[in-house]
Design a binder for these strands. Sequence first.
DNA 1: ATGAGTGCAAAGGCTTTGCATTAGG
DNA 2: CCTAATGCAAAGCCTTTGCACTCAT
Lengths: 145, 145
Amino acid sequence: MHRVAASRLAAVGQRYTPGRRMLIDTLQAAGRPLTIPEIIETTGGLPQSSAYRTMAVLTQAGVVRRVVAADEFARFELAEDLSTHHHHLLCTGCGVVADFELPSKLEDQLEAAFEAAATQHHFGSVQHRVDLVGLCTACTNTAAR
Amino acid sequence: MHRVAASRLAAVGQRYTPGRRMLIDTLQAAGRPLTIPEIIETTGGLPQSSAYRTMAVLTQAGVVRRVVAADEFARFELAEDLSTHHHHLLCTGCGVVADFELPSKLEDQLEAAFEAAATQHHFGSVQHRVDLVGLCTACTNTAAR
DNA sequence: ATGAGTGCAAAGGCTTTGCATTAGG
DNA sequence: CCTAATGCAAAGCCTTTGCACTCAT
């Protein structure tokens, strides 16, 4: 994985520094999209600007994907080809993000339908974003106050 | 439609004022999600705070849905039960949003799969968000500079 | 008259950026 | 050595909020 990351960074004229490598490890270890505050906490006090800047570089290099959750903070996760294709369950209450997958057959059908829609609307280089938005258990209970 | 809007606003203790009615008309006339700047321009100089505040009220009342596009601005559209169920094509270049629909059969299968995933993760009151992210024709050409 | 809605201006909060310092080729 | 990366601090930008005014009941 680090090999891929290094080559992708090189492809956009960026180095693979220890700091960047560490953040990639952090994301992989988390196994779910992390916010900048979470990243800072996990790494034990990384400066905000470094966190934002590194995520920007990694996103641009295609190593990391930026996930837009409900509102609040953006979240970052490893690019899909460095992990697995999956989707997100977003809690509108607390913002937590969980991963889930779809049956591969359904995934294939979706892909075909998306391809058709993109072609029809003259959109290129399309990725799909299939998320569920709702309330997690904790927030459901809270909302029932 | 205005009847529904009025009753939903009433349900959350809000009035259906001319200003709010006008913004709903604006959204319906647009037929696609609009940003606050677009709304201001379309209405000919509505104050920002009124635009944001009215959208917040309408969103809370379930008359309007907030669409999180690529980055940039949030966009607002009529709630699905006041228009039709559809999905979005988001351009990462210029932020423009187009609508598209999926075959109803596929939509049904998706719904079932989502229901299963939500149950498994103990998420409640789930809505799905199926979007395509890519580059529109104009931005594809621009990117090829 | 009384309370909600609106407008203006200022504040808030996530994110980005300028500049000096440090590390890497 | 010289360019790129990092850290700190300040600025930016979308959005929200305080306060006074207006309108509808």
